[in-house]
Amino acid sequence: MISTIPHFVFLIALLMLFIAMVLVLLRLYKGPTLYDRVLSTNSFGTQTVLFIGVLGFLCERPDFLDIALLYALINFVSTIAILKFFRYRAIGDILIEREAKK
């Protein structure tokens, strides 16, 4: 009896994380500015890390924690890369406008 409770608790935690991910995706869809979208992508990544960890405990395969660590790493680097890329693009647009004026 008592051994089925952890299963249940992890299942509930997965469900909660899933609801939170859906809410954040709604913000990603609605977000008026680019930075709202980057922010919600970032917190979606954090929730995915937690999701993978809980899933590993639910399946009794703690090896999943390596994948969670990898995902956290890629999430951080991709956020920085997206921000830098969009900074460049904005400047590129201004350059294109200048060339159009010529």
């Binding site: 090896d63 999943f64 390596d66 994948i67 990898l70 790493l73 890629i74 680097v77 890369a81």
Partner: peptide, 17 residues
């Protein structure tokens, strides 16, 4: 554990990137 050459190469490249 899960992993291997492909993932390791990507992580190593991520450090440089």
């Amino acid at each position: 554990s899960p992993g291997g050459g492909f993932q390791a190469g990507v992580i190593m490249a991520v450090a440089f990137i």
